[in-house]
Design a protein around this nucleic acid. Structure first.
Lengths: 138, 138
DNA sequence: TCCGAAAATTAGACAGAGTCCAAGTCCTAG
DNA sequence: CTAGGACTTGGACTCTGTCTAATTTTCGGA
């Protein structure tokens, strides 16, 4: 899928068992049309760019709902805020510590080997690999 | 080194070019004697267990200082707070999402291969590998 | 020992992310 | 058209972490 419309979003939401409301469609559209990592605050700004229409509470509720329904993923790299990632496929992250920029690393060629057995009664929820980089000192 | 005393701590701090004050020794002792991952808040509680003696500002200042001097490491796994890790050797983390418990995975046998080249002018600050687990549903 | 400067610590005000709640609005089935 | 559930809202609130101006501690030199 290469082009995202608000209609697409309604379908996508239904496919994930989410009742598509105006606000939910706008929030999904903000995330998927940009294919970027956004914080709740950024989503808020984008969605309310023209006319204020979506409250803070709804943005947080909706992002949490999307997360539960597996529509988006949470990325925890910055101690001060969470990023949300519309790409739920297996991939990793590159984080520029000085600028805060966060980009994807495709998982295709990355292999992680030698992880120990999990303790009994535990199952893996996810594996996050974060490469922290900075601009080289001159 | 197997036994940590407050005297050890003073030496450790000096070795890292940190002026050992009462508060700094107590904070280092809290982290190293337990060999656990503690949040700033937990450090605060431990250090002030008997008599209140160290302020919030000092706890935060000191943890930041230790971090800069490479005495401890920051672990970002919980969206709501940062953990500090007295183990600065190469290793990874196992995070139990339902309990918040954070444990080490020794890096000895773990291999990460196939990471793409970094963009020019960038250097790696660190690689964080976090395995998120939860208790298996019954 | 005493002094002054620099370093460290402090209380408390502040900032920003995220949560909570009670009230109000919007569907939608009947 | 209506009733009820689902959804949204503003605003108060909590919590982690930062900042600042004032005080205390440390420490080298006289």
């Amino acid at each position: 899928m290469h082009h995202y419309s608000r209609d697409n979003m309604a379908e996508l939401l239904r496919a994930h068992d989410i009742n598509p409301t105006h606000q939910r469609i706008e929030i999904a559209y903000a995330l998927f049309s940009r294919q970027e990592h956004l914080s709740a605050d950024q989503v808020m700004t984008i969605v309310n760019d023209r006319h204020a229409e979506t409250s803070k509470a709804t943005v947080y509720n909706t992002l949490k709902l999307f997360l539960e329904k597996g529509l988006i993923r949470e990325v925890i790299v910055d101690p001060s805020k969470v990023f949300y990632d519309p790409n739920t496929g297996p991939h990793h992250h590159l984080y520029e510590v000085d600028t805060g920029r966060l980009t994807d690393i495709m998982a295709d060629d990355v292999r992680i080997e030698g992880l120990p057995e999990l303790p009994k009664g535990m199952e893996t929820v996810g594996i996050d690999l974060i490469v922290r980089v900075k601009r080289t000192a001159q």
